[in-house]
Each structure stands twice: as structure tokens, then as C-alpha cells.
Nucleic acid binder design. Structure first.
Lengths: 191, 191, 191, 191
DNA sequence: TATGAATGAGAGTTCATTCAT
DNA sequence: GATGAATGAACTCTCATTCAT
């Protein structure tokens, strides 16, 4: 059982991470620690009590995000045994975190290297499930290296995410274009 | 006829733009105006004589870049009447400007909104030629909306460009993976 | 008779002072209260339970140090009745606390004024014994005001202590140069 | 011939150094760059236009100071051929820069290492002249290693400088005690 | 036209101190 | 009495922009 103090500390840390998540999703990764602190209603110094540096905060945040995203993809993907459902699940998960995910892929170069790696690892979970399902359905799918199929899929959805302002400035992109993208990709893969 | 002064001025402006292009290609768009001025061998203030603000410089630079890229694509694409050659031409052009182009798509969020739009317009030229060729070859190509085919192609190559550090940290990505990407895409499109 | 709580409290206080002594000896007086607390295995706040402010801690520490040093000098000096043995005793005592003593004279300006005064008072004990012995041996010693002789001696050893990094970066200075300094000083005083 | 711009720049740099000199002399080396900027009537950023970092400012300042002090000592010492005059000259020079010199020897440990070395080198100039004169007068001086004589002298005056608050809180120490110290030291050296 | 020294708002980070637990 | 999370003022340093020359 946790003491009140421990709970409060965890709360503050969580609050900072959640606020950072929102602020970054909204303003991008050039948002300042001062803004995050203000929005989280903690003092500026408090951020550095919980995270020794901005880079550390970013790493933790993205690590956490990666864990959540990865495990959600994993959980949903596990029960899917056809490619269509898998892609749908993938889109569903990304749609839920769309705003932040866009910032992540759009501003990756601003992030500390460690965070970049962390994020890179997320992809491999999706790739793993993709692989598994593709192999099973290989008879109806064009004979191409799996990784190229996967990268085409990733490229397609990232392209729409990165160009959200063109495709769907106000509403979430994946909500609007997800089905279309899926159908396109399925049709392309088909023998 | 231009006075000597005017020529000199144009020269300086050009020098700044060229240097900015190189510096940004090398260091990304967080490079400072001071660095650009130094490398261009002009004073720091001179930059602001020619461009009222950094954002203006970025807009002009990307405008210029867009014009060059657009017209090069246009020039090469005009003579191509099959999809394969067109894609090859597209890759060739992008390969020539790879470093800067990557920065552009990777750090687009750092750019002023106007520059983002400017750049967006570039795509339409490629799209136009893509459209034209696809329609001609529609008999052998899967029956999908052309813009989705185009976006799949763009997504694929952008995905490799954006993840250059993973796919080809040292050598240019398009040089190494271009053919493979093209073949993949052609195979996918095929009926 | 003391309650358990009182004993505990005294213990903690002592622990803090001892740790502070070691940390300051090692790192100088710019060491932070957080470091001291950590090393003393008490919470950061505990320091301020025992000492209302950092300055107060410093004053107590230096007061205590002064008391120990003063009484040690006094104890040893009391039994010495010739100048040579007195100086030797003085050096011996200082050698035992060399590291901290150096910090004290080297970083005196960082200390609260009160601590500076406290420390100043230490000197007078040495001066007192010096005086006494000198007067007894005045026949063989140059006819100079005693305080000037004493200050010359203090100056000489402080000079070596303050420039330890030049004279003896690794080994204790007084161990290495003490005898030499003593001989020099004795020879200088001699008629 | 220098342009107005160059003169102005040099002026600002000089102003910053002079102000830093005064502020440090008055408040010690923990004075902040903001205070120096304010007192020098330049913006805070200007300091970093002229000196890339605080450490660099300190190094330049102490370098400059060392050069001035060293050459003054050298100039005055050159024409002196007896020890008495030499010591008087030494005291005269130090007296002129007393406040800053005290900070330098009192807070040496706060300075960047490079500055510490710079300062150390200053001493050797005094030592050189001391050596030369002592050798000439060796017949009347006690037979002791010259460096020990020199260090005794340095120790003596540094001791009075470092304890200015005890010996002469208001008036300059060397003005008040210089002659006395000199006489004492001469008497001690005498055979 | 070109210069570059000067500006100043704002960045991340540190740390003695407080106070609810 | 002891805790340690939270505070916030103060620190050094950055950089697009200005303007007298």
C-alpha cells in the first residue's frame, strides 16, 4: 500500500507527463518547459525534480507512449488472423493517438537520439504482426518481400498523417481516410 | 539594363540563398542566421537587408527550390510516356536534391506556414504527370483512384527518405533503394 | 538524563556535521545541501530542522572545528617549552586537518561573516602559546614584535597550504614541506 | 587608423572589462554577469558578444590584469639593485591593485583553471627579480634557499591581504602595514 | 548597399528553503 | 523529529532583429 506522499508524487509526475503529452500534441516539441509547468499547475522547478533534463522528460514521455502504443497494437493484433482486420486494428490504435503521433513522426529530428530509437522500436511490433499475417495469406498476395509491403503501408499512412493539413485540416485524418487507405492498400497487394 | 548596384545586390541575395540551401541541407532548419551569414561571407545584417525576417528567407528559399524542383520534374516528365520511366525520372530528380529535400519533409513543422504551402504545391506537378501517364496505361493498372496511387508512391519514397538513418545512414537512400522501390510500386500497381 | 528522542536528535545533528565536514573537505564549500543530506543518509529537510539555514550550518561546523582545533593546539602546546617543539606541534595538528583547513582559508570569502570571525578567533590560541614561548627564548631571537613573528609563521604555512596544487598536488603539503618550513622559520628568527 | 565602429567596439569591450574589474573587486567573483552588464550600461547579451562565456571573460580579465601587474613589477624592479627598494616597489604595485588582488588570492578556487594558471605565472616575475637581487646581497643575508625566502615574503604579505578585515577593515592594508612588513622581513633575512 | 555591434526576451537548469505528511 | 516533494528566484547563455555607421 502506498503512502499519501508516494501517491502525490506519482500524481505530479503523471500530471507533468500528461500535460507534456497534450502540449506537445498541440504545439509540437518546441513547446517550452515553462509552458508545460504552467499548464500542469506546478512550478517550473518541479519539472526538474521529476526529470533531470528536458531530454529526459522527452525520453520518458516517448518511452511511455511507445509502450502504450506498442502494447495496444500487440493486444489488438494478436487476435486478428486476416490482414484486413490487422490493418484496421493498426489504424484504430493510431487514430486514438493521432495528434501526438503526427508530431512524433513530423518532428522526430528535434528529439534526443535516445527518444528517436525508442520510437523506432515501436514500428517493429507492428511489423512483426504484419509479417505473421501476410505469410498466412501469401497465396492471395503479390509475391513481394514482406518488408517492402510493410513499408508501403507505413509510408501511405504516414504520408496522410504528415500532410494532415492538406488532407483533413480539422478532423482527424485517419478517421476520414483510414478506410480508403486500407482498401487501396489491400487492392494493391492483391494478386 | 541593370546598374552595377543592382547586379551586386542580386548577387548577394543569390549568395545568401545558395548558402542557406547548403547549410540547411547539412545542419537542418535550426541552423542560425549568423551561421549562414558567416558561411556566405556577408555580414549578419545583410541577410535582413534582403529578407525582412528569417521566415521570409525560408519562404523565398523554399519557393525557389520548389520552382527548380518543379520545373526539373516537369522537364524530365514531359518526354516520358510510360510509368516506369516517369518514376525513374522522379527518383532521379529527388536524388539530386536528396539532402535538402529530406530536411524539407522531415522538419516541415519548423517552417513558416507559408513555406509549408509553397512546398505543398510542388507535389502537384509530379501528380499532374503521374496522372497523365497512368491514364494512358490504365489497362494494365489496377483500377484505383489515381490520387491514391500517387500518394502511395509518395508515401513510399518519403518513408525511405525520412528514415534514411535506418535504411542508409551514409549513402544517399534513393541511390541505394530507388530501383527496389520502383519495382515494388510497379508490381503493386499491376493488375 | 536524556530521552531517547533527544539522543536521536543529537545523533542526527552530529551525523550532519560530520558529513558536512567530509564533503566540504573533499569538494569545497560550494557543495550543496542536497549532497550533504544524501551522504549523511538523512532527508534534505532534516538539515533545516537542525540548522535554520545553510549559513547557520556553516557557522556551527566551523565553530565546532575551531573548538577542536583550538583545544588540540592548546593541549599540545601547553607541554612545549621551546619554540621548535611548539612549531612542530602546530604543524602536526594542522596536518591532521589539512584538507578541511585548506578549504577554510582558501574559500573563506564564501562563508558567512560570522563564520569568518569564528575562524579568526582560532588563530589567537596559537598566537598565545607562540607569544609565551617566544618571550622565554627572547635572548636568542631577533628583536621583533612577537605578533609580526607569528604572522610571518602563519603566512609561510598558509602560503604553502593555499598553493598546495603547485607545491604538492597529491600528498599533503605539511607532511612534505613542514620540516623545511620550520627550519627556515627558525633560522630566520635566530639572531 | 581605426574606424568609429572599431573604436566603439573596443570601447565596449574595455568598458565591460573595467566594470567587471570593479565589480569583482567590490563584490568578489560570485558577482553575476547581469550585474556587470547593468553597471557597464550595456545589455546582458552584449557581454556574450564580446566574451563567449563567463569563464572566457574571467580568463581575459585576469590575463589582462596579470599582464599589467607583471609588467609593472618588471618595470619597477628592473632599476632596483638592493633588496629594500625591490620590496618597496613590489608593495607599491600591489597596493595600487589591492582590492582586486585580494579577491584573486582569496577566491582563486572559484576561477576557471586556466585563469588560475595565468595568475600563477604572475608570481614568477616577482620571484625572478627577487632572486637576482638576493644573490647580489648574499653576503649580508642568511644562508637559506632563495625560494624559501621569497615564499616567506609572499606568505607574509598575502597573510595580511587575506586578513585585511582583521588588520585594516577600512583603509588599504598595504598602505598601513607595508613598511612594517618590509622592515620585519628585512630584519629576519639579515645575518 | 552593406555592415556588425548591440539588443533583450526567453531558454533550460540549479538549489536553499518550506511545509504538509 | 524526520521526511522529501514542491517552490521560484536567479543563474548563464542564445539568437533573430535593429540601426548607427
Amino acid at each position: 500500500m502506498k503512502s499519501k506522499r508516494q501517491l502525490q508524487k506519482e500524481n505530479t509526475r503523471k500530471k507533468i507527463l500528461e500535460t507534456a503529452y497534450q502540449i506537445y500534441a498541440e504545439q509540437g516539441f518546441s513547446a517550452t518547459t515553462a509552458v508545460i509547468a504552467k499548464e500542469a499547475r506546478v512550478s517550473h522547478g518541479t519539472i526538474f525534480v521529476h526529470f533531470p533534463s528536458l531530454d529526459e522528460l522527452l525520453c520518458c514521455l516517448i518511452q511511455d507512449f511507445g509502450d502504450v502504443l506498442g502494447s495496444e497494437i500487440h493486444r489488438l493484433a494478436e487476435t486478428k488472423d486476416n490482414i484486413e482486420e490487422l490493418l484496421k486494428a493498426h489504424l484504430d490504435v493510431l487514430a486514438r493517438y493521432e495528434k501526438f503521433y503526427i508530431r512524433l513522426i513530423a518532428e522526430r529530428s528535434l528529439l534526443p537520439e535516445e527518444a528517436q530509437l525508442t520510437f523506432s522500436n515501436i514500428q517493429s511490433i507492428a511489423a512483426y504482426h504484419f509479417n505473421k499475417v501476410i505469410e498466412r495469406e501469401s497465396s492471395t498476395i503479390k509475391n513481394l518481400p514482406v518488408h517492402l509491403l510493410f513499408n508501403t503501408w507505413m509510408g501511405l499512412i504516414h504520408y496522410y498523417l504528415l500532410n494532415k493539413d492538406l488532407f483533413s485540416p480539422d478532423a482527424p485524418v485517419l478517421e476520414r481516410y483510414g478506410p480508403e487507405l486500407m482498401e487501396t492498400f489491400l487492392e494493391l497487394m492483391k494478386k
